[in-house]
């Protein structure tokens, strides 16, 4: 029963990792940009949520109504004001600019909020749980989080294949030059993709902040977890990122069960193993 519990908890955490991954995967898919500051933006969202919950007295779930649009606007402006200038054939500028951004964000948060660990209080929701069997219960909050992760992936999938926005994303991703000839303003489309990515980041940040303690230095690990989920699941496969997130969550939970020091390490090793033996990921491009 203990192991069943471990695996279930791992699956639920995996939903969070899938959220980290979905935002990363979205912008890579649309504009081949790997955002090194992705994890720090998740942590930024957590701090925005902290301000909103403290300032407006909202509970964390309700704070999404503020945090999501705020992060989306930040994403749009970030892309239009800074990252669009780095787009091109050379991979160095976007990589190094987002790396610099990561350092700026970490140190900026440190300056504003100090290095103290923080956490969002969700009140009664935090301890609420469903008893499935003797010694086996699932928290309501992790369930909401997992449900949202699935909904986000499904929503992204639908958006990509059934909306005008998704069509623009695919066209720009296929051939940015011709997309312009068809009347698409690539800069605007890229900025919309980043806005959407950071809207997802906002949801991830809020749930991260409720689940665990966070501080300004916790961003890079979130980037790495999201990245591992992307690679494990298979590049360019949205459902793959969900599978990758879940697998990463389960492996980490299993590692932690064996030895608390192995939690994160086990995830990394699983990632490297996938890379070594199935580098195209578990769900490859063909099955998206």
């Amino acid at each position: 029963m203990n192991w069943v519990n471990t695996i279930l908890q791992g699956v639920l955490v995996g939903g969070l990792y899938a959220m980290f991954a979905a935002g990363l995967s979205l912008i890579f898919g649309v504009m081949k940009l790997v955002n090194i500051a992705h994890g720090d933006l998740i942590v930024l969202a957590a701090y925005v949520a902290l301000i909103v919950t403290d300032g407006l007295g909202l509970n964390p779930i309700a704070s999404l109504l503020v945090v999501v649009p705020v992060m989306a606007v930040i994403g749009y402006c970030l892309q239009r004001g800074l990252l669009n200038r780095t787009m091109g054939d050379d991979i160095l500028p976007p990589l190094l600019v987002t790396f610099g951004l990561s350092v700026i964000l970490q140190n900026g948060l440190l300056e504003l909020f100090s290095a103290d660990s923080r956490r969002l209080q969700a009140g009664a929701l935090e301890t609420a749980s469903l008893q499935l069997a003797d010694g086996l219960s699932l928290g309501v909050l992790p369930l909401i989080q997992f449900g949202l992760a699935v909904a986000i992936i499904a929503g992204l999938h639908w958006m990509f294949y059934h909306t005008a926005l998704g069509r623009s994303f695919r066209a720009v991703s296929d051939d940015p030059r011709v997309a312009q000839l068809m009347g698409l303003n690539n800069r605007h489309v890229f900025a919309l993709a980043m806005a959407l990515s950071l809207a997802i980041v906002a949801v991830a940040g809020v749930f991260l902040a409720v689940r665990t303690n966070f501080d300004p230095a916790t961003g890079p690990a979130r980037l790495i977890f999201g990245f591992e989920a992307v690679i494990i699941g298979g590049l360019s496969s949205l459902w793959g990122t969900l599978l990758g997130g879940i697998l990463l969550g389960v492996v980490q939970a299993a590692g932690a069960e064996l030895d608390p020091g192995w939690q994160v390490l086990a995830g990394h090793v699983a990632f490297l193993a996938v890379l070594a033996f199935r580098p195209q990921g578990l769900l490859s491009r063909a099955s998206r």
Binding site: I36, I91, P94, I231, H268, L272, L275, A276
Partner: peptide, 29 residues
């Protein structure tokens, strides 16, 4: 190299970072 070279461009960057994290966590043990 055998493992991380399977990642291209920017993904290689993060892959190399994961390796460094494995080293850090490994030596902590």
């Amino acid at each position: 190299a055998a493992i991380t070279f399977r990642l291209r461009g920017a993904y290689f960057a993060i892959g190399s970072w994961v390796v460094a994290e494995v080293f850090r966590l490994g030596f902590s043990q």
